[in-house]
Write a protein that binds this DNA or RNA. Sequence first.
DNA 1: CCATGAATCAATCATATGATTGGTTAGTGG
DNA 2: CCACTAACCAATCATATGATTGATTCATGG
Lengths: 204, 204
Amino acid sequence: MEEHSPPQHYLRHETRREMIAAAAIAVILEKGAAALRTRDVAARVGINISTLHFHVATKSDMLRLVAETVRTAFEALLPPLPDPDRPAPDQLRAEVQAYHDSLRDRPELAACFAQLTQIAPSEPAIGALIEDFTRNWCARYVEILTLGRAQGSFRANLAPLPTALMITGALTAFGPRGPGGLAQFWPVFTEIERGLQARPKGGM
Amino acid sequence: MEEHSPPQHYLRHETRREMIAAAAIAVILEKGAAALRTRDVAARVGINISTLHFHVATKSDMLRLVAETVRTAFEALLPPLPDPDRPAPDQLRAEVQAYHDSLRDRPELAACFAQLTQIAPSEPAIGALIEDFTRNWCARYVEILTLGRAQGSFRANLAPLPTALMITGALTAFGPRGPGGLAQFWPVFTEIERGLQARPKGGM
DNA sequence: CCATGAATCAATCATATGATTGGTTAGTGG
DNA sequence: CCACTAACCAATCATATGATTGATTCATGG
């Protein structure tokens, strides 16, 4: 089904590794991480299995490569780190916008990420990488929320960490849903925003 | 490692199927769905592979059995359907409490559910079941939220579906996290609650 | 232009894995 | 208590799968 441009033999190590990562991601998307086979990846790249093993020692290595590739690609799409001097609501929106765009333009990333989450039990290195990324991602929201509370744009009784977990959790749910499932993305974010806003005074 | 009570031979079809489902769930929890092997399940139940195939025709069947078992067990833990005559905030809390308790008392359920998502691509029946369950689960929140808005306990500008997606998304994130990761559960819910509350008037 | 090594492949291995076959045993209805 | 069938198992099959071996080809620096 794939048309590998005619025997474009003899590519560089790093080039091949990138192609392998891309192919592995595609296979994971189509069949799920549970059905990932080194042979399928090799076939997709258009190389022999032994060639694949030349570039990527083991399947476990391949999975690490995929995880690192996805993580790096994801991080490259994130906006600049929170800036204490800009309004938090704007930064929150920018942060969410970046995530939205990643779902729209590179749906493989989040979908693959979700799949990788599941193989963590048998691949501790992957689990650690994912956990680390997730923590960092969440930390960005914690910062923005803390900032916004200090700036007075968010509720004074807002707890940054739980709120950040709520937001990242809600957003993560859009990952596995295909690019079509983005219809409710902004409505969901609008609700989140409403829930954060400072109230005109007079609680209860 | 497992001590199967001494050769308690000749159990009923349904009994064995339940044992098989339980064993499969345990294996999925320990090694992940990708590493699920019919042999491991049989060994855990304490039966021969051919006996396993006698009760469960194929691995695919076994997976469906697992999915249905998890779903049924999950649904059994849910509170009664939303009641238009009770205060929505109470019902919301009851709904969330039930989910919390399921995470605390039956962590296998949510964790296994999450694992099943990785075989969904190659097992459409599983995917459909998961999607269906998720939709129903979300619908419960939609009802409660709609009710609460009508009752005046929630913001008048609250959009039920997006908010329900937000809540279920945020809650789902606690599924894969083990029972230890529940520390932030109630803090997160508290934030959600605060975001829903009707404001004292005077928007903007 | 050739020697060297990086990149490639065909063939093969060892084991894992889902499934089947054919026969054995135990509980049960008559 | 016997016959019948549901439940069970040992042995085996066919294929899938991750990985290796040893030879081959291309690119390139000297």
